Amino acid sequence: MKKQENLTKTKDSDALGSMPETASAAYADRSRLLTAFDHFASAVTRWAGTPVAFCFALACVLVWAATGPMFSFSENWQLVINTGTTIVTFLMVFLIQQSQNKDSVALHLKLNELLAASKSASNRMIGIEELDEEQLRAVAAFYVNLANRARDHGDSQKVHSIDEAGTGGTSPLAAERLSCRR
């Protein structure tokens, strides 16, 4: 019965290997395989950024270069380094992307907590990363106008929120969300 409930909660975006949305409880409910891959990806990306990893890669290139005269700098000799670097790069892209996705979700969750805990911040900003680019540009324009208003009126220490846009009580964020529903 519980498996049936879990299956009905699954959306297309929760496919195997995909990162759940920031606001999703599915982020905390992951399979052992995904958790193991996450730990593996984190460990590899941490190791790949160390001086030891760089020295290992440099040593591989130096050994390859030193063997060039033995193989008369043949096409097969060149193919070895090309194939090796392509495979390593291809696999590292996925491992690094996994780690970046996890870090991005964690950062969004931390920011959401700060927004929710702050009395002067708008809770509408929580989950704003789900807006499309046009909606984000409208919100960014609000903050540019807010900065210009603060500079022009000298109220740089005054607390403002996206909830007070001065447009009849409707913030650009609310206006964008309303226009998307129509």
Rank of each mutant, 00 (worst) to 15 (best):
M1A: 10
K2N: 09
Q4W: 09
E5H: 13
E5R: 13
L7A: 15
T8L: 14
T8R: 07
K9P: 01
T10S: 06
K11F: 06
K11W: 06
D12N: 07
D14E: 06
L16I: 13
P20C: 12
P20W: 06
E21R: 12
T22P: 03
A23W: 15
A23E: 11
A23C: 12
S24T: 07
S24G: 05
A25R: 05
A26E: 14
Y27R: 04
D29F: 09
D29Q: 10
R30S: 04
R30C: 02
S31I: 14
L33Q: 10
T35Y: 03
A36E: 07
F37M: 15
H39I: 08
H39S: 02
H39E: 07
A41E: 02
S42F: 03
V44L: 05
R46N: 10
T50R: 01
P51A: 01
P51V: 02
F54D: 11
C55N: 08
C55F: 13
F56E: 09
F56G: 11
W64G: 03
W64M: 10
W64R: 06
A65E: 10
A65C: 13
A66M: 08
T67D: 15
G68V: 15
M70F: 13
F71L: 15
F71P: 08
S72P: 02
N76T: 09
N76A: 10
W77H: 08
W77L: 04
L79N: 02
V80M: 08
I81Y: 12
G84P: 00
G84E: 06
I87C: 00
I87K: 04
I87H: 01
I87M: 07
F90S: 11
L91P: 00
M92F: 08
V93F: 00
L95G: 01
S99D: 02
Q100N: 05
N101I: 00
N101T: 02
D103W: 04
V105A: 04
V105G: 02
L109E: 12
L109V: 06
L114Y: 06
L115G: 07
L115D: 14
A116W: 14
A117M: 02
G127H: 03
I128P: 00
I128R: 04
I128T: 11
E130W: 12
L131A: 10
L136I: 11
R137P: 01
A138N: 03
V139R: 06
V139D: 02
V139T: 03
A141C: 12
F142Q: 04
Y143M: 06
Y143E: 13
Y143L: 12
V144G: 04
V144K: 15
V144W: 08
A147D: 05
D152M: 13
G154N: 09
G154V: 11
D155R: 08
D155H: 14
S156D: 11
Q157T: 15
Q157Y: 07
Q157F: 09
K158G: 05
H160G: 00
S161G: 03
D163G: 08
D163N: 13
E164W: 05
A165V: 06
A165G: 15
G166T: 07
T167W: 12
T167F: 11
G168L: 08
G168T: 05
G169M: 07
P172T: 10
A174D: 04
A175K: 08
R177P: 00
L178N: 13
L178I: 09
S179C: 01
